[in-house]
Nucleic acid binder design. Structure first.
Lengths: 232, 232
DNA sequence: CCGAGTGTTTGCGCCAGCGCAAACTGCGGT
DNA sequence: ACCGCAGTTTGCGCTGGCGCAAACACTCGG
C-alpha cells in the first residue's frame, strides 16, 4: 500500500517537487494512526525517527524529575515534530501525545539527508521551524517574567485559537479537547486559577466554555485583556 | 591586516579544516572590538550579519513593548550568535550587548552558504547550537513554571558559573560583571528579591558577593538548594 | 579629596494566586 | 437507566514575593 502524493504536496517543505520526487519522499515514510491519548514518542527515549503530523493535534509535554508536567506546544496538521536529530540530539527532549486521533508520517533518521537532497526546501523549512519555535519559546519566557496570569492565559488562548481555531456560530472554538489543567500547564499556573478566570470571563461574555471545550466569543476583548499594560 | 588562523582553529564548527580553508573562512570575516556596554546588534534591526565571539562575554537581551527587559542568555567565547538568518529570520529577535570588552568576528549573511560548503561541520554545529538553545529555553520555561524563586536563582547562578566560572581561592567566581538586576532579569524576579536572597546565602556561607560580582563558595550546598524538591 | 552616579541593602505592607478541600456535573460505559 | 469517573467549580485562608521607598556603599572622574 503506497501513500498518496497529495498528502504532502501542499506543505512548504515539499513545495515545487514533481510527482516522482514526492513519491520518493513517501517511499521512505511509514504512515500510522495514533488513537487519542497515545504516545507517539516518549521523553528520554532514543530518537530514531522524525515525524510529520498529517491529521489531528499533538501535545508536546515535558515532565520534570519531580513529576511536574508542562505543555511545551501543540503541533498542528502539516508540521514536523520530533526532529531531535536535526538539533543534534540522540534522545527526545519531550513526549508527544495525541490530543485527538492522529495520522502521522514517520521517517527513520537515516532518511533525513535523503530528504534534504531530494527537496532542497525541506532542510531550510525544518530549520526555520526550529528557529520559529526558539523564538516562540523565548517569547514565552518573557511573558512569564513580565505578565500577570490573567494576561498569560488570554495570550495562550489566542495563540491556540489562531492556529487551531474553528469558526462556529457562537465564536471561535478550539478544535481539540483541552482541559483547564492543560491550559494551566501551558501557562505555568494551576487549574484552579484557570477555572476561576474562565468562569469570570464567561460571566463577562468573553468566552464560553464547557467540558474540555473553549469558545472565544469576543476575541477583540480578549486581546485587550491580553496586553493591557500592567503597572506603571 | 589578516586574521590569524589560530583564532578559530579550535572551534567545533571548524574542526579538521586545513590552513588554507581556515584562511578562506577568515577572508570573509571582519574582526572588531566592542567596548563594554556597547551593542553588537539591536533587537528588531535588519539582520545582515552573523557573529562569533572571540573574546569577552555578551548579554542577549529581549525588551518587551512595555519596556520590560529579559536576559535570554549569555554568550561565551567561541560561540556563534546573531544567527537569525539561519533560522529564517530577517530581523534580530533580541539585542546583543557586550558585558565586558569583546572581540567579535562578523560575517555577512552571504557568507553563510560559503562557510557551510567550506566546512561541512559548520552547518551542523550551528544547527546544534540552535537546538541546544531551544532545549535550554524550554528548560527555563519548565523551571519558571515549577520552581520557587529561590531555586531558579540558584540554578541560574550554577548555570552561569558552569559556563563562565573562574576558580579563585575563595570559590568559583563569575568572571564578568553581573548586577542583581541582571540576575533578576534572567530569572523573572526583581532585584530586591535577588538581593535579599544573596544576602541570606552570604550569611549561610554559600556565596560571597559584592558590587557586580558573585563568588560561589559552596557549590554543593547551592546545588542542594537548586533542586530541593518543594512541596510534597 | 570630593561629589555624583550607579549599584545594593533593607524595612514594610499588601495582594495575586496557590494549596487544600469539598461539592458538583456531564459523559461514557454496561 | 444507572453508575462511576474525569473534569470542573468554588470557598477559604495563607504566604511568597512584589511594589514602594529610603538609606546606604562603592567607584570613578575631576
Amino acid at each position: 500500500m503506497s501513500l498518496d502524493r497529495s498528502l504532502i504536496a501542499g506543505l512548504p517543505g515539499f513545495a515545487g517537487l514533481d510527482a516522482g520526487d514526492l513519491d520518493a519522499v513517501l517511499a521512505r515514510a511509514r504512515s500510522s494512526r495514533f488513537p487519542k491519548d497515545t504516545e507517539v514518542f516518549a521523553q528520554g527515549a532514543q530518537a530514531g525517527s522524525f515525524f510529520l503530523l498529517l491529521a489531528g493535534h499533538i501535545r508536546v509535554v515535558r515532565t520534570s524529575p519531580e513529576g511536574h508536567q508542562v505543555i511545551a506546544r501543540y503541533i498542528n496538521e502539516g508540521e514536523l515534530f520530533g526532529i531531535a536529530m536535526a538539533m543534534g540530539r540522540t534522545t527526545y527532549p519531550a513526549s508527544a501525545v495525541a490530543a485527538v486521533d492522529c495520522v502521522v508520517l514517520t521517517w527513520p533518521n537515516a532518511a533525513w539527508p535523503e530528504l534534504q537532497a531530494l527537496a532542497p526546501a525541506f532542510g531550510a523549512s525544518a530549520y526555520r521551524t526550529i528557529g520559529t519555535r526558539l523564538q516562540e519559546t523565548q517569547a514565552q519566557v518573557m511573558e512569564m517574567s513580565t505578565q500577570q496570569v490573567e494576561q498569560r492565559i488570554a495570550n495562550a488562548l489566542l495563540r491556540i485559537v489562531s492556529q487551531s481555531g474553528k469558526k462556529t456560530p457562537e465564536g471561535i472554538e478550539i478544535d481539540f479537547p483541552i482541559t483547564r489543567q492543560d491550559i494551566a500547564e501551558m501557562t505555568g499556573t494551576t487549574l484552579h486559577t484557570v477555572s476561576r478566570l474562565l468562569s469570570a470571563w464567561e460571566g463577562e461574555g468573553l468566552v464560553k466554555s464547557g467540558r474540555q471545550k473553549v469558545v472565544i466569543t469576543d476575541p477583540h476583548a480578549l486581546m485587550l485583556m491580553a496586553d493591557s499594560r500592567r503597572r506603571k
